[in-house]
Amino acid sequence: MPRVPGGRTREKTAIPQLIGSLDLKGSLVSVDAIACQLSNADLIVEKEGHYPLALKKKNKGVHEQVSQRMQAKKAGLPSAEHVDFGSGRIERRRCYVESDLSLYDDLAGWEHLGSIVMVEASREIGDKTSSETRYCLSDLVLAPDEFNGLVRGHRRAAPFVAPPVRYALFGHRPCPGPTTHLRYRW
């Protein structure tokens, strides 16, 4: 993998190399927002895998268009809520899925894109509440409760892996295949 002085890996160039070296047939590939690029999505699909790619503010035009449209349309979108209790906290995730992608000009080149997913998450610990909204792009067209299940699966796998690794491969029911857990940040 390409390295910079000091031995660190240059993630933007290492991610496509890693994806290219793996057998992804029937696997779900989740990668940190740094990999939310059309070329990575195409490579994953070319290797017969599927993806939810995290979309962050660094993808300026796309993030802005997606966040504005999803917020404006969320009342009419299919959604599902999941609540987790445990370890003195309450976590809620409401997942919205948009599969009519015709109005998203900035995503016109994403040939395999099937859904845009928005997750509004809140966490209550004692008297403190934090919340955030996350977005991802996926080639899959799933119901909101299925995407919510993917988020839950990622969160459970993450603590068991060393923090510097930022790639995740997950087997998924509609995509039968090997299950390999690495690190995920979405």
Rank of each mutant, 00 (worst) to 15 (best):
G86Y: 12
E111G: 08
T9Q: 06
R8F: 10
L24T: 02
G177A: 09
T179M: 12
R155C: 03
R3N: 02
V161E: 01
H154P: 00
K73A: 03
P5S: 05
V66K: 02
T179E: 14
P2M: 02
G88Q: 12
L38N: 10
H50T: 00
I90D: 01
D127L: 14
G20M: 11
Y135L: 06
F85L: 11
G126N: 12
R152D: 05
F160S: 09
G20A: 10
P16C: 02
F170D: 05
R89M: 06
S21V: 01
F160E: 06
P163M: 03
L107F: 13
Y51F: 08
G86V: 09
H63C: 01
D23S: 10
H172I: 02
K57D: 07
H50F: 04
G26P: 12
W110K: 11
P52H: 01
M70V: 00
D145C: 06
H63M: 01
F170A: 06
G88L: 11
L38P: 07
R185V: 04
R89Q: 13
K57W: 02
P144K: 02
T9C: 09
E132L: 13
P52C: 03
E64A: 07
K25M: 03
I116G: 07
R8P: 00
L182N: 07
G7L: 13
G149Q: 11
K60Y: 09
G109N: 15
P164Y: 03
R94C: 06
Y167A: 07
L28M: 10
A143K: 15
V29C: 12
G7S: 09
V97D: 08
Q37D: 04
D139I: 04
L140R: 08
V97W: 08
G177P: 12
V165N: 11
P2I: 00
R69W: 01
E46S: 10
P164V: 01
E132Q: 14
E91M: 09
L107G: 09
T180M: 15
P174G: 01
T180N: 12
V62N: 00
S102G: 12
F85K: 12
V66H: 03
V31N: 06
P5T: 00
V97P: 11
A80C: 06
C95G: 01
N59K: 14
I44V: 11
R152H: 07
L38C: 05
D139C: 10
E111F: 13
L137D: 03
D127V: 11
L18V: 05
A143L: 14
Q17C: 03
G6S: 05
S122M: 12
A35G: 11
L142I: 02
E48I: 00
P2L: 01
E48C: 02
D84N: 10
H172Q: 10
P5N: 03
V62W: 00
C95Y: 14
P159F: 03
S131T: 10
Y167F: 15
D139V: 05
S27V: 04
Y135C: 05
T179G: 14
S130G: 11
W186G: 02
R10A: 04
L28P: 05
L150P: 05
H82K: 13
M1G: 09
